[in-house]
Computed example of a mutant assay.
Amino acid sequence: MRLLIIGDIIGRPGRRAVYRFLEEKGGGFDVVLANVENAAGGFGVTKKVYEELKSHGIDVFTSGNHIWDKKEVYEFIDKVDDLLRPANYPEGVPGNGFCVCEKGGVKLGVVNLMGRIFLEPNLDNPFRTFDVIYEELKDRVDVLVVDFHAETTSEKWAFGIYADGRASVVYGTHTHIPTADEFILKGGTAYVSDVGMTGAWYSVIGMHYKEPIDRFLYALPRKFKVEDKEPVVFNAIEVEVDPDTGRALKISRIKEMYE
Rank of each mutant, 00 (worst) to 15 (best):
L33D: 09
L33G: 08
A34W: 06
A34Y: 06
V36R: 03
V36S: 03
V36L: 14
V36Y: 05
A39V: 14
A40Y: 04
A40D: 15
A40M: 07
G41R: 01
G42F: 04
F43W: 13
F43S: 12
G44I: 02
G44F: 05
T46Y: 04
T46D: 10
T46N: 07
T46G: 07
K47S: 06
K47Q: 14
V49K: 08
V49M: 13
V49C: 09
Y50R: 04
Y50F: 15
Y50A: 03
Y50V: 02
E51W: 00
E51T: 12
E52H: 08
L53Q: 05
L53W: 09
K54M: 10
K54V: 11
K54L: 12
S55Y: 02
S55V: 09
H56G: 05
H56D: 00
H56F: 15
H56Q: 11
G57M: 05
I58R: 00
I58P: 14
V60T: 10
F61S: 05
T62Y: 00
G64L: 09
N65K: 02
H66K: 02
I67D: 06
I67M: 13
W68V: 09
W68M: 05
D69R: 01
D69N: 13
D69Q: 09
K70G: 00
K70Q: 14
K70S: 03
K71Y: 01
K71G: 00
K71V: 03
E72G: 11
V73H: 04
Y74C: 04
Y74G: 09
Y74S: 13
Y74D: 12
Y74M: 09
E75I: 02
I77G: 07
I77A: 04
I77Y: 04
D78S: 13
D78C: 05
K79C: 04
V80S: 12
D81H: 12
D81R: 11
D81A: 15
D81I: 05
D82T: 12
L83Y: 05
L83M: 07
P86M: 09
P86D: 08
A87W: 04
